[in-house]
Design a protein around this nucleic acid. Structure first.
Lengths: 211, 211, 211, 211
DNA sequence: CATGAATGAGGGTTCATTCAT
DNA sequence: AATGAATGAACCCTCATTCAT
C-alpha cells in the first residue's frame, strides 16, 4: 500500500531523508573506490562518479576527502561494536570456564564476521590512510569502552590477585590484532581454523587467572 | 689512456663500492624522510636533498619511488630475521617448558628491540605505504621461513597429536601481530609489561600442547 | 478567479512592491557580504544566505553576480550625487571667495560623509571588483554631470580667460581622488585634518583664477 | 668576440643567471597576463603558457600566485622611486618658487612617465588584486620614505609656522592620487594638460606656505 | 515564485620523473 | 655519472548558475 505509506510519513522525506540517502550513496561509493584504488588513488572525483553524482554534490555533504574516510572508519568501528554487543546479548554472563569459552568464541566470531565483508577496504581504512588526530581520540575511546565491556564480562571469573583491567586489555588487543592480521593476510586462509586457534589462545591465557 | 683514468680514481672506491655506498646513502635518507613526512609527503626530491645529492642521481640507483620503499621493507625484514636468529643462536634448543620460556622471551625481546628503533618509520613502511605485488611474495616467503624456524625449535617439544606447523604459525603470527600492534599504538605504553603478557600468552597457548 | 487571488495577496505588497523589497534585501545583503568577504569570496550563496533566501530566488531578481555589483555601484554613485546636491541646496550660489570656500567645504564634507559609512565596501566596489564596460559609460556620464554642476557653481566667479570646464573637471577629479584615497588608506588617518587640507588645496588652485 | 666574452665571465652563468632570467620571464609573462585578464582570470597556467614554460617551472620560482603579484608590485614601486629620484638628481635643491616649480614638474612628469607604460596592469596591481598584509607594510614604508624625500626638498622653503611633514605628505598624496586617477581613467585624456594642471595645483597649494 | 540540491568547468598547486648540460 | 631545471598529468576543492520539485 504505497498510498498509505506515503501518508504516514510525508514531511520527513523531502529534506532530511534525501540528504541521508545521498550521504549513504557517497559513503557506499567511497567504500567501493577506496577498496579498489586505495586511499591516495581513491580520488573524490572517482568517488563522485561511482556515486553517480558530481564532485560538487559530494562536497555539499562532506567538507573534504578526509572527512569521508573518517566517517567510514567511524561507521566500521560502530558496526563492530554493535556486532560484538549483539553477539554478547544472546549469551548469559559466564560463571565458569565453559561459559567463558562460549563468550570468547562468540566475540571472535562476530569480529571475524564483520571483517569478512571487504578485507581490502579494511586495510585501506586502518592502515593505508592517514588518521586525523581527532579520529584517534575516538578510536582510543572506543578501545577503552571495549576493554571496559571485556572487564565486566571476564572480571568476576578472575582470581582476586589478577588485574582485571590489564587482563581485559590484553585479551581485547589480542583478538583485535589477530583478526586484523587475518584480514590483512593477502593469502588464502583457513578462517575457521584460525578462529579456533584464536579462541584457544585467549582461553589458554585466561585459564591460569581464573578463580 | 686507461692508465691515467685508473690513477685519477681513488683506490678504495671502485665503481662497485661507490655505488653500494650511494645506494646506502639514499636508503638512509629515505628512512629519515619517510619517518618524518610519511609516504605520500616523503617526496623523492626530499629524499635526494636529505641524501645530499640530486634527484637525477637518485633515479640512477632506483628506477622509481616504490623501489626505494621495497628495498627498505626488504632490509627491515631481513634485519628482523637476523636479529631473531641471532637471539636464538645464544640459546640451546629447549628441552622442557623452562627452556621454551627462555626461547619465547628471547624472540619477543628481539622483535620488540628491532621495532623500538623507529616506530614511525615502521608504520609508514608496513601500513601507510602501498605494497607492490612483487614484495608480497617475498614477505610471504619470509613468514614461511620464520614459521619453519619456529617449528624446528618448538616441534620436538610438542605432543605427537599436535600439528607443529599450525602451532608454529599461530605463535609466529601472534608475536608478530602483537609487536606490530605495540609499534602502531600511538598512546604511551608500558613496553615491558606488554612483553611479559605477550610471552605469557604464547606460553599459555603452548602449555597444553607440550608432551 | 482573479478576485480570489487578489484577496489572498496582502494589500500593501502587490507584485511590484514585493519585488522591489526583495531586490533591496538582496542588495543590502550583498553590501554586507562584499564588505566582509571581498568580491571574489562574496559568493552568491553567501549573499542569498545573508538575505535569508535561496540562491534560486536571488537569481530571479538578478541575472548574475555582476549585475548585483553594478547595481550597488550605481546606487552608491547616485547616493553620492544626491548627498552633494543636497549639501549645495542649503547654500547660496557663491559670489565671492568666501562663499566659494563655504561651497567647497560643504562638497568635500558631503563626499567624506557618504564614504565614511563603509570604507571596506567602497574599496571592494571601486577597486577590487571588475567593472563591466556597461557600467563604465554610466560612471563617465555621472562624472560629466558632476563636472557640469561644478562648472555652473564655480564658473561665474572665474576670470574670462579661464576655461571653466577644465577648471571644474580638475576640481572634481581632485576632490574625488583625494576622498577615495582617504577611503582606501588602510592606516589610521586624521580625517578632519585631511578635509581641511583638501579644501585648502582646491581653494588655492582656484584663487589665482578668480575674477 | 664571443670566445673572449665566454672566458671573461664563465662560472657565473650556469645557476645564478639562468634562474634570474627565468624569474624575469615569469614576471614579464605575469605582467602581460594580468594586464589582459585581470587578477582572478590571470591564472598561473596562463602565465606559465605566456612565459612558454610549464606550471611546474613557475612554481619553482614562486611559491604561489600571490607572490608573483607581490613581486610585480614591489618592482613597480621600486621603479617609481628610482625614476623620481633620478629626475630629482638632475636638479639642484630649489631656493625659490621658480626652482620649486621645476622640481614639482620633474616629479609629476616622472610619475606619469612610469605609469604610462601599462595602465591596465597598474590598475590590476593596485586596485583589483588582494594585497597581503606583508606588502602593505612595505608600501606604507615606501610612502613614508617618499614623504621624507619631499620634506627634505620642500622643507627649507617653507615658513617656520608651517608643518613640513604634513605639507610634504599632502603634496605626495595628491600627486600620487592624481596620477593614479589619470592611469585609472578609461577615457582618452589630454595627458600634458593634466600634468600642467596637476603641477599648478601643487604649486598653488604650496605658494601661501613659502617663506 | 521559492527552494536548495545538483552541476562541472576551472583554479591553484604538487610531485614523480625526464633530460639537456 | 651527476646535476637540477623542466615537465605536465593529476589532485582537491570552489562557486556561479541551473532546474526539478
Amino acid at each position: 500500500m504505497p498510498t498509505t505509506e506515503k501518508r504516514l510519513r510525508p514531511r520527513k522525506t523531502p529534506r532530511q531523508l534525501r540528504a541521508v540517502d545521498t550521504r549513504a550513496r557517497i559513503l557506499d561509493a567511497a567504500r567501493v573506490v577506496f577498496a579498489e584504488h586505495g586511499y591516495a588513488a581513491g580520488t573524490t572525483n572517482r568517488i563522485a562518479a561511482e556515486a553517480a553524482m558530481s564532485v560538487g554534490s559530494l562536497y555539499q555533504y562532506f567538507p573534504n576527502k578526509d572527512s569521508i574516510l573518517v566517517e567510514l572508519v567511524r561507521t566500521h568501528v560502530d558496526d563492530g561494536g554493535r556486532a560484538v554487543l549483539g553477539a554478547l546479548d544472546a549469551l548469559p554472563r559466564p560463571t565458569d570456564a565453559e561459559g567463558l569459552a562460549r563468550v570468547v568464541r562468540a566475540v571472535v566470531g562476530a569480529m571475524v564476521a564483520i571483517h569478512a565483508d571487504d578485507r581490502r577496504l579494511h586495510q585501506v581504512l586502518f592502515e593505508e590512510s592517514p588518521r586525523p588526530a581527532a579520529l584517534l581520540g575516538e578510536l582510543h575511546a572506543m578501545e577503552d569502552t571495549a576493554v571496559g565491556v571485556a572487564a565486566a564480562w571476564i572480571g568476576p571469573l578472575l582470581r582476586a590477585d589478577v588485574d582485571p583491567e590489564l587482563t581485559a586489555r590484553i585479551v581485547t588487543v589480542t583478538i583485535e590484532s589477530l583478526v586484523h592480521r587475518l584480514v590483512a593476510s593477502e593469502r588464502p586462509l583457513d578462517v575457521d581454523g584460525f578462529v579456533d586457534e584464536c579462541v584457544a589462545l585467549v582461553l589458554a591465557y585466561l585459564a591460569p587467572k581464573l578463580r
